[in-house]
């Protein structure tokens, strides 16, 4: 019985403390770097596209709003021929970032993406690709993958032996 009135009193007291609401357009909140907002495609430290078009982000996307097509350059390096995110469907769950084996796709704290036309919410690769490494500096998938690409011969990746000479008879 007394606790009821105590509850009322506590609630009343809360009416006179500082507000927690941030009045957004006038005052911009500082979003933490891991905040899940606008999706970008990053580049590796050497400036190459990080995305290798493995299709894992599109597979994991629960609203199926990522579509891409893999292509390969003359030296065997994979890249997406097109990479499209339909942000009018995106729920910013971050599963694509989690699935990405190369740190290419990242969610950034950008949240101001409103458009008056839904069609403008469809982002192509040109709109997504940034020129930096994003949240993950230093990683370059092709330095650990066994695939041969331009500028990296077989056996030149990290933790690899030089290619085997099959005609060698030494034990």
């Amino acid at each position: 019985m007394f606790s009821l009135f105590k509850g009322l009193w506590i609630v009343l007291r809360h009416a006179f403390v500082k507000r927690v609401t941030v009045e957004y357009p006038e005052k911009k909140p500082v979003l933490p770097p891991r905040c899940r907002g606008r999706i970008i495609l990053s580049r590796d430290p050497d400036g190459g596209e990080r995305c290798v078009a493995c299709h894992l982000c599109s597979a994991v996307c629960p609203v199926a709003c990522i579509a891409l097509q893999a292509a390969e350059d003359a030296h065997g390096r994979r890249y997406p021929k097109f990479f499209r995110i339909n942000f009018s469907r995106c729920i910013f769950c971050g599963l694509c970032e989690e699935a990405c084996p190369t740190y290419a796709i990242q969610l950034t704290p950008g949240v101001e993406m409103g458009e008056y036309k839904r069609q403008h919410l469809v982002y192509e690769k040109e709109d997504l690709l940034i020129s930096g490494v994003g949240k993950y500096p230093g990683y370059n998938f092709y330095r650990v993958a066994g695939l041969q690409i331009e500028g990296k011969d077989k056996g030149a990746a990290e933790n690899e032996q030089p290619p085997v000479d099959v005609r060698d008879l030494m034990p």
């Binding site: 009343l12 927690v20 609401t21």
Partner: peptide, 8 residues
């Protein structure tokens, strides 16, 4: 309600 809940 907002007042009681420290909102605007």
């Amino acid at each position: 309600l907002a007042l009681f809940q420290e909102r605007w």
